[in-house]
């Protein structure tokens, strides 16, 4: 009809051509985030478990992981690629994401474990449950909803930050955002596709967490 097609019509046209690429990038993005969250969870929960009962180490861990989160992401990426073994690409991105993901996980692990009713722990002790059994069979299951919330917050946080990883050649939807040549005809469409992709990914992850929370939380404490 007219040359003057509106931006959303052109966006749909773009998607028709490029959806396969966008999807691939979305999967890459998800994989980077999942790997990072897994590493951050293992590290963060371990740090929380090791420090929740002792004041000094606990504050130290919270201060350090809190500091990580205040480093601007571009700065952190730039610093990390200087390091041997890391360099440009996915490895540096994962290291940065793990650093950003630690605080919510460590923090919620500590809070969750400290909030467990001391009477429950004492009665477990009084029945002859050892330290490890108490932690894994009583304290952790009771703290779990809080810990899981920490992991969920970390995941959402990392989905956003991962997009910036494209700045140092990281994989994922960020490529669409940073790779767009400013001013080109497709630039707007690519940025839009990248942004929407991140949002959709965040919603999908959140849905997964709702399901995981339901499946892994005891009926007795829901």
């Amino acid at each position: 009809m007219s040359d003057d097609i509106s931006w959303y019509e052109s966006f749909w046209t773009y998607l028709e051509f490029a959806w396969q690429d966008v999807l691939d990038l979305g999967v890459d993005h998800a994989v980077v985030v999942i790997i990072s969250v897994l590493i951050a969870t293992v590290t963060g929960v371990a740090l929380g478990v090791l420090t929740y009962r002792t004041e000094r180490p606990r504050e130290l861990v919270l201060a350090v992981t809190g500091t990580f989160l205040t480093i601007p992401s571009l700065a952190l990426f730039t610093l990390l690629i200087q390091l041997p073994l890391l360099g440009l690409g996915a490895k540096s991105v994962v290291v940065a994401l793990v650093m950003y993901g630690l605080l919510p996980i460590v923090r919620n692990t500590i809070v969750g474990l400290r909030e467990v009713d001391s009477a429950i722990v004492e009665s477990a002790q009084g029945m002859g449950m050892g330290r490890a059994a108490r932690l894994w069979r009583i304290e952790m299951p009771l703290a779990w909803p809080v810990v899981l919330t920490g992991i969920r917050v970390a995941t959402l946080l990392l989905i956003g930050i991962a997009a910036i990883g494209a700045y140092i050649n990281g994989p994922g939807l960020g490529e669409l955002i940073f790779g767009a040549s400013v001013g080109s005809a497709v630039a707007l469409n690519e940025v839009l596709a990248g942004t929407l992709g991140v949002i959709v990914l965040a919603i999908l992850f959140d849905f997964v967490y709702v399901v995981v929370t339901r499946l892994t939380t005891s009926k007795g404490i829901r």
């Binding site: 009477a119 429950i120 004492e122 002790q125």
Partner: peptide
């Protein structure tokens, strides 16, 4: 402790 029964005021049943 496994040989000694233990009941406290808050009872401390495991809620989960």
């Amino acid at each position: 402790r496994r040989r000694i029964g233990y009941v406290i005021q808050q009872i401390g049943l495991f809620p989960h």
